[in-house]
Design a protein around this nucleic acid. Sequence first.
DNA 1: TATGAATGAGGGTTCATTCAT
DNA 2: TATGAATGAACCCTCATTCAT
Lengths: 242, 242, 242, 242
Amino acid sequence: MTAAAPAPRGRAASRGRIDKRQAILDAAFTVFANRGYAGACMEEIAEVAGVAKHTVYNHLGDKESLFHAAMEAAGSAVMAENLALAEQLTVDQSAVASTAGGQADPVRTRLEDVGRLLLHQCCDPRSWALRRLLHAEITRFPDLLEAVWGRGADRLRQTLADRMARLSLAGLLRPCDPVEAAEQFLALLTGPMEARSQLGTRPVPDAERELVAHAAVSTFLRAYRDAAPGASPSPSSLPATA
Amino acid sequence: MTAAAPAPRGRAASRGRIDKRQAILDAAFTVFANRGYAGACMEEIAEVAGVAKHTVYNHLGDKESLFHAAMEAAGSAVMAENLALAEQLTVDQSAVASTAGGQADPVRTRLEDVGRLLLHQCCDPRSWALRRLLHAEITRFPDLLEAVWGRGADRLRQTLADRMARLSLAGLLRPCDPVEAAEQFLALLTGPMEARSQLGTRPVPDAERELVAHAAVSTFLRAYRDAAPGASPSPSSLPATA
Amino acid sequence: MTAAAPAPRGRAASRGRIDKRQAILDAAFTVFANRGYAGACMEEIAEVAGVAKHTVYNHLGDKESLFHAAMEAAGSAVMAENLALAEQLTVDQSAVASTAGGQADPVRTRLEDVGRLLLHQCCDPRSWALRRLLHAEITRFPDLLEAVWGRGADRLRQTLADRMARLSLAGLLRPCDPVEAAEQFLALLTGPMEARSQLGTRPVPDAERELVAHAAVSTFLRAYRDAAPGASPSPSSLPATA
Amino acid sequence: MTAAAPAPRGRAASRGRIDKRQAILDAAFTVFANRGYAGACMEEIAEVAGVAKHTVYNHLGDKESLFHAAMEAAGSAVMAENLALAEQLTVDQSAVASTAGGQADPVRTRLEDVGRLLLHQCCDPRSWALRRLLHAEITRFPDLLEAVWGRGADRLRQTLADRMARLSLAGLLRPCDPVEAAEQFLALLTGPMEARSQLGTRPVPDAERELVAHAAVSTFLRAYRDAAPGASPSPSSLPATA
DNA sequence: TATGAATGAGGGTTCATTCAT
DNA sequence: TATGAATGAACCCTCATTCAT
């Protein structure tokens, strides 16, 4: 204090800055999630972050900028986890061969694993909070969609579609529009959770989540692998989002 | 009406009250939808409703009560429409018989009709606004769920499940858990719309909506009717929500 | 209702009016006492009185008029009781004669009786409420003093002074300024109650009130009857209030 | 002040805060005294204090807290002055001795001095405003009594009682209950002022106040010193408040 | 006369933002 | 850069009063 080592500079200083910035972003997301955008107040955010009110302004500008930054940060984190999961949807060819004719069903197993994990992510409180905030503020901040989910409306669906295409090519799924398959796979997984978790308000037990994942995969496989070949040809091979 | 009485009295007076109350509720829902709960201000609601600020308080109490009432009113309207639709999911036995062996597929036709209409309802701006507000405020007003969707978690799913059960019983669908079938039918229908309409922000063209409905029904029928009988038996025949 | 005896008129009707007016005045005083002038609201007064809000306006005009009327009514009632008591302060000459030389002390007895009763009145909740409201609003409504205590600042003191003069003339008290005597008698009685009842907030037990009355009379008699004649002559024979 | 430093720092800064806080408290008391609690508005207080409205909230919280703080501050000031005065009620023994047999009456002189000064304090506009506010709000804020008069119901009476006890012990007053003596001394002094000053509304001329003080002391001395020893023994030698 | 609906004004409180240190 | 004080605008709500029946 008195003798004053001139306060750590260089790396340490900017590390301090970075940490403080991150602390503010985390605090902001928490508070926004609890109170909503309009209901949140900068003072509480500063308090939760452990800094002075004006420091928030110094680091991240006004309330709107702060909101965008916090949402973007949270979105990146959530999306990164989801993408990492989607990329795991691969089936080892050798595994398929070795179990031919047997009871094991490596495609189903893989789909269920990935489905279970995706559902786990989607039911994460932070993930729900993000989606709720998105719903809440999308009309006032339409840019939020891109900011949160990254450029390209939905990378998750595209990534999943890539995997579906490869499964289809490998003969593990019937020929199909991979984007549609990805879209419906996600719908079968996450659709039922909205009501079951009461919009993320109710913690859903693991068992229930696994039940949903299992049912989703079963229906998906019936439709995309086991269905009688000639039945109900789907003419929709157009790009999904137009 | 016809005789043109010189300003209606008695009943008409209370009719005036009712009209005013309804005008306030409508205005409130509009403003809440535009600004969010915290962002909405009573003055604007009164303005839009064409009454004085205090009149809002006289009729519907404070902001929170008004919000609940407006949400409940909107929810009842939306839910009533949805239920009416779901109840249309019936297949005339004679129609099935008369087309046996032919090309027509009455079950598919009916499902697509209902699906298209449900999707139409779900993409209605008011319906989206309601869901967005629900997402936005569910953490602060957990009672909203029941208030909006009526008592019983989700009557729509149950009503749909009733119809599924009858279809299954009639041999038009394979034996299955009707609740799960309803749940997945809804998921296949509405799930894809979230991303496609950008959380209700983007108006979805009719053609695209019909494409989604068609794809949903195709996948649903493959899984719940056409699938090879022995394939992938789903052990989950329990009621879905426990 | 239907056949309509044409509603009672004449005496009965105006009786109804009077009753309603009195009910409003009573309700007003109660509410003003509970909430203060500014804190009271017309609606609550109307509610307590059991009439519609506007009826209050019809009968007693706006808030300020109502306040004055309610205070005046309460003041008249309280003052009437006090005056009736003060007038009881007489000593029967024969009683004095008959007990001469004995133990009984009719003057003391009479003073204590009157004192006890005055104190009882002063500690009445309504009396305290009146005084508190007077203190509260005197700066904003200086006319209240006269309105409440009747014309002539303090008839109580004057009435008491009359009695004191007669006692003094009868030789039952030493020669003195009767107004000063009355003033000090009242001060000795009521002064101690302010602190003891916590400004009328605490109910004072009967025993404590009697103690105060007894002490007041004792001190009063020592000073105005028993004191050594030559001691401490009081030169103040001027009119008290100037 | 003299050296004219270019705007004082450090201590001066917090001094500025203190000054501002005090300015707000003073302004608040003034406005509350003028308008009453409910009638006062924060805006006027801020205006009178010369600060922005929100600054009032920063320093002293909401209206109720501000009211308590302002009342407590005013109460402390008034009570401190009163106590200082009461403590002056001592009689120098030598003075008594030296004037024995003469005309001078040091006890009376001292009592009149103290009485005159106490009366002066009690008639101070601030003192009246404080008492009026206390009367006005005691039912809604019962804690105010202790907050204003400090802990211990009434330190003034106790302090005065201490002095009375010493005078009695010194033989300058007859044996008596000192608390009762103090209570009655105060009653004789202040009781008459209520009516005479019209609850503090009318400025009482010095001469009139001195008259009251003189009369009070005369009556007090007659009762507590000059009265015939055997006359009217007061049995109440218990502590007054129990 | 009595009522219930309606109004416009005003007050307490909160908040995002800026200033001075 | 970080802070704490200060600000002015805005919002929810209450209230005294009037209008139409």
